[in-house]
Write a protein that binds this DNA or RNA. Structure first.
Lengths: 225, 225
DNA sequence: ACGATACTCCACAGATTATTGGAGGATCGC
DNA sequence: GCGATCCTCCAATAATCTGTGGAGTATCGT
């Protein structure tokens, strides 16, 4: 192979890798990936959850599809997007981890977003034991859609924004273990703060759904009619 | 925290993650990362190896530095760039793997670049045993600079472009195990083809330096005065 | 067949990024 | 201190990406 031809082929290969990098090069697309890591969802649902114009969301999803990061299925008039594989979630998680470790701006933005993160935490291997004793109640505070698409077995669903009104659905003298989407999700932090203010003992699960899935732990789902 | 403020903080956090994604969004930057995964190098050296204008290379390196992916040290008039950590190499490797698995263009570009990849391969755990028997010679075909910055213990260095002239430095009746930068590097493929044409028995090592390092296997270095 | 729904495609304006030549800094040998 | 070397910063152009409204497409219920 001539040297020039080989250099061209090399550039092409690296540009192909870069196409995947480009898919990760927009905050909005990363938000969409984060949502998709919770389970499949319609364009409209994703647009609303990410605070995007429908057209814009669709365009970003096309970009992700082009990179092969997401796949789709049609159900009637709706099109459901989902992650194309666990490895995509893994890549997303690693990107966040590396970003946090090497970019000073990340911890700053993280703390500004999550607020006080100095709460009690439980690791998933400790959770199993406490569930068996019946010592705790597991609470999923994500939007119902995401709970339906997949949740920790035995968890009950009360979205954060309904939690203040529905707090009495929780047993009064049992610890509540709260989880949400993942490491950088506010929902569980907000929920723990709210529960604590109401005199409940609440602990944040160290893992969100993203980490739970990546650890290959069991997931219950309700939907897919 | 007011809902709007929180939404803003969220956007900011994801934009911060995206800054790392952006660092991965250019083929040239990925080539630089690939080179840096071999060991530290000057701007000039990187520019030449990647076929870039010095200014352009410098600009890309600034981008990578901004994302915290690379670090620098000064030695006299020269500035050496290096990867900021193993996790960066890991992210880079995972990006390529995910890209290959989900983007049809990658295998096509890969085959066009690497040529016939249907050669014998050896895994690193098999290598150890054969080294102990003295059954094989390990050959590093990367540029000398990269060999000096770190190589497999016991490997000898003959850059591919000198291999045809220096082939007699290799023992005639011993198998040669060839390695280079990593999974998507041509050098070892080219070398195996060349050695085979000259009637030598050559086997490609399954891992390049990138994978070797990520597997935490021992590395010898010569340089760093 | 018709309207309604959910989504994609197109076209365009505004914002970012890439590349390059040339000017400007830092450091060395002398 | 002076020139040489190696690199970064600046300015400007070209190319690419983002967000948006409006038009177009697929599917469903009737």
């Amino acid at each position: 192979m001539a040297a020039t031809t080989q250099a061209l082929a090399k550039t092409e290969l690296y540009e192909a890798f870069a196409a995947s990098g480009k898919a990760l090069a927009s905050g909005k697309r990363l938000e969409l990936l984060d949502l998709l890591a919770q389970g499949e969802r319609t364009v409209d649902g994703l647009a609303k959850a990410a605070g995007l114009n429908l057209t814009t969301a669709s365009a970003h999803l096309q970009t992700l599809k082009q990179a092969g990061f997401v796949a789709t299925r049609r159900d009637g008039v709706r099109i459901f997007y989902r992650l194309a594989g666990d490895d995509v979630a893994q890549l997303f998680a690693l990107l966040r981890k590396v970003a946090e470790r090497h970019q000073a701006a990340v911890p700053v933005a993280r703390d500004a977003y999550l607020g006080d993160t100095d709460t009690a935490e439980l690791r998933h291997n400790e959770l199993q034991a406490r569930i068996e004793i019946g010592d705790v109640v597991v609470l999923d505070v994500r939007p119902v859609e995401e709970y339906l698409a997949g949740h920790i077995p035995g968890a009950i669903s009360i979205p954060v924004d309904e939690l203040a009104d529905r707090i009495n659905e929780l047993p009064e003298h049992t610890d509540t273990v709260v989880y949400c989407r993942g490491e950088y999700c506010v929902l569980a932090y907000d929920a723990v703060r709210l529960l604590t203010e109401h005199g409940r003992r609440a602990i944040r699960l160290n893992d969100g759904m993203l980490e739970w899935r990546l650890a290959d732990l069991p997931v219950d789902a309700c939907d897919r009619p």
